[in-house]
Design a protein around this nucleic acid. Structure first.
Length: 498
RNA sequence: GCCGCUAUGGUGUAAGUGGUUAACACGCAGGCCUCUCAAGCCUGAGAGUGCGGGUUCAAGCCCCGCUAGCGGCACCA
């Protein structure tokens, strides 16, 4: 691995000097809860749960143009589905504007910031020009050098003004990131950034620092896209006379083409994964492994309890993580298989309800039967959607016949029609009707007629389910039940020629 | 352009303070089991650790340079 990690790390270092872990997830409601945000939220949640800390939800909606209440709802919906419950909040930054303004004025008073009367459009044009010429451009600090009298005059004249931070002209700003180690930046490479816009709204740097301090955040766990901005925030903490919290930046999540995850990579919102039939449990597991590892690559299927137990900032990697959809599917299948039918019950029920296949009796007098079917299906399922597709023949008499299966299993052998009719007859008077007796009857019939049992088995499989791929045939027969099985065998036989 | 970060099979991770044949998982190929598929079990292909130097008896781990990728550089967050 590359450079040295935070040296001599000890588990207890994670919580040194803080009596109580307080972490937050602070999305800006300019979009739904996407994979990257969900991963960040999960890391914070795991950390809080591991140390018995407090997980806070804060909505960074200071960009009025781009924020919307619907997006806040969407983010909350995603977090709820993922099971990431928060202990405080949601706090809305839009309701705390007075605080940011007061703090910004404090910095002006203490000499750490100054009023800037420059025209934003003019500055943007200059920046634009410099960028086009591949030149570096930095705000030249025009207003930093204004005399007190001049400042007073412009204020009196009602000039619109922003507040800029007075970045030290020399020296370096450094901090220790729990993941990336020592980060050091020369102050001359940081421009006098805006704290408060002329419309009175704070910029990100101001609101995030003020809130994290005000909310006594102990650890800031967020995406590495904020790493480069952290020195500015450290500068702010110092100017306020506050001790910065522990920083831990997590690598970004990229698509298979190593580009930043975007719409063209398909599903980006976590609710899209819910709709595809992913289990929250599996999603937490998969997301946790995006940029974090417990250190043992052979143990990847982890229940949430284990994730909480194993999670540590030290296990966060520095290289960007690549989102591997195939692996997510595999992981979902593993969780599906590992969970009991009873655990799966509410999820499967929700899927069936969406398809209009749910019946109240499945939760009442036929619950036992229903759970048995879930157990049969879960072994082969990759997503919850599979319970409605491959489960349809058990929950409904209206299911599709796969033409290929029909051709292969029903129409290839002309003896099939007679065999199915005979099988139906024998099943009809079979008592009891269970795994052993149905198998004895079917194999007996095959032997009598001199055909391989497989011929009857595959024919029955397709006749009963419309498919060529199902659980073991006798499980299927018993699950479908004598009455329906007999009827389907006869109905299908009727469509076949001798 | 400036600043910062990263670099181990196709993908995700291992390989405590440098020390055998670079391991595990996903995926892939083949086989076993078998009523299909999945699961399970067995076997196999696939990297010599981005590139180039250096230090050392010994480098994936340390140092330097380069390249590439990613991120940041807004009165966005």
């Amino acid at each position: 691995m590359g450079g040295p990690r935070v040296s001599t790390w000890e588990p207890q270092d994670e919580v040194t000097a803080v009596s109580h872990v307080r972490v937050r997830f602070a999305p800006s409601p300019t979009g739904y809860l996407h994979i990257g945000g969900a991963r960040t939220a999960l890391f914070n949640w795991l950390f809080a749960r591991k140390y018995g800390g407090t997980f806070i939800l804060r909505i960074e909606d200071t960009d009025v143009e781009r924020s919307s209440p619907e997006m806040i709802e969407g983010i909350i919906e995603g977090l709820r589905w993922l099971g990431l419950d928060w202990d405080e909040g949601p706090y809305l930054q839009s309701e705390r504007l007075a605080l940011y303004r007061a703090r910004a004025e404090e910095l002006v008073a203490s000499g750490w910031a100054y009023y800037c009367f420059c025209d934003p459009e003019e500055l943007a044009a200059k920046r634009q020009r410099a960028l086009a010429e591949k030149r570096t451009w930095k705000y030249e600090g025009t207003c930093r050098r204004l005399s007190a009298g001049e400042v007073a005059r412009r204020i009196a004249a009602g000039h619109p003004r922003a507040i800029r931070f007075k970045v030290p002209e020399e020296g370096v700003t450094r901090f220790t990131d729990r993941v990336y180690g020592e980060i050091e930046v020369r102050n001359e490479s940081i421009e006098d950034f805006v704290l408060l816009r002329s419309d009175g709204y704070p910029t990100y740097h101001l609101s995030v620092v003020v809130d994290d301090a005000d909310m006594r955040i102990s650890h800031i766990i967020r995406g590495a896209d904020h790493l480069s901005n952290t020195p500015k925030q450290v500068l702010l903490y110092r100017a306020f006379g506050w001790e910065p919290p522990v920083f831990a930046h997590a690598p970004l999540i990229l698509g298979p083409d190593r580009q930043r995850l975007s719409k063209r990579h398909g599903a980006m919102s976590v609710t899209a994964y819910r709709d595809m039939g992913f289990l929250p449990e599996a999603m937490r597991n998969f997301l946790a492994l995006l940029g974090w590892s417990p250190g043992d690559p052979s143990r990847e299927i982890l229940r949430t309890r284990e994730l909480i137990e194993l999670f540590s900032l030290e296990g966060i990697s520095r290289a960007n993580a690549i989102f591997n959809f195939e692996k997510a599917l595999w992981m979902n299948a593993e969780h599906l298989r590992a969970m009991s039918a009873a655990e799966l019950f509410p999820f499967v029920r929700a899927e069936l309800e969406k398809e209009g296949l749910w019946r109240e009796e499945y939760g009442q007098e036929r619950r036992e039967w229903f759970l048995r079917v879930v157990d049969l299906l879960k072994v082969r399922a990759r997503t919850l959607r599979d319970f409605v597709t491959s489960g349809r023949p058990y929950f409904s008499d209206d299911f599709p016949m796969d033409p290929e299966a029909v051709q292969k299993n029903l129409r290839t052998n002309s003896a099939v029609k007679g065999l199915l009719l005979e099988l139906a007859d024998r099943f009809e008077r079979l008592e009891p009707f269970d795994l052993q007796t149905t198998e004895r009857v079917l194999r007996g019939l095959a032997e009598e007629r001199g055909v391989k049992a497989g011929v009857i088995i595959n024919a029955a499989r397709t006749a009963l389910t419309g498919s060529a791929v199902t659980p073991g045939i006798f499980d299927v027969i018993v699950a479908i039940g004598r009455e329906r099985a007999v009827r389907r065998l006869r109905q299908v036989a009727a469509t076949l020629s001798e």
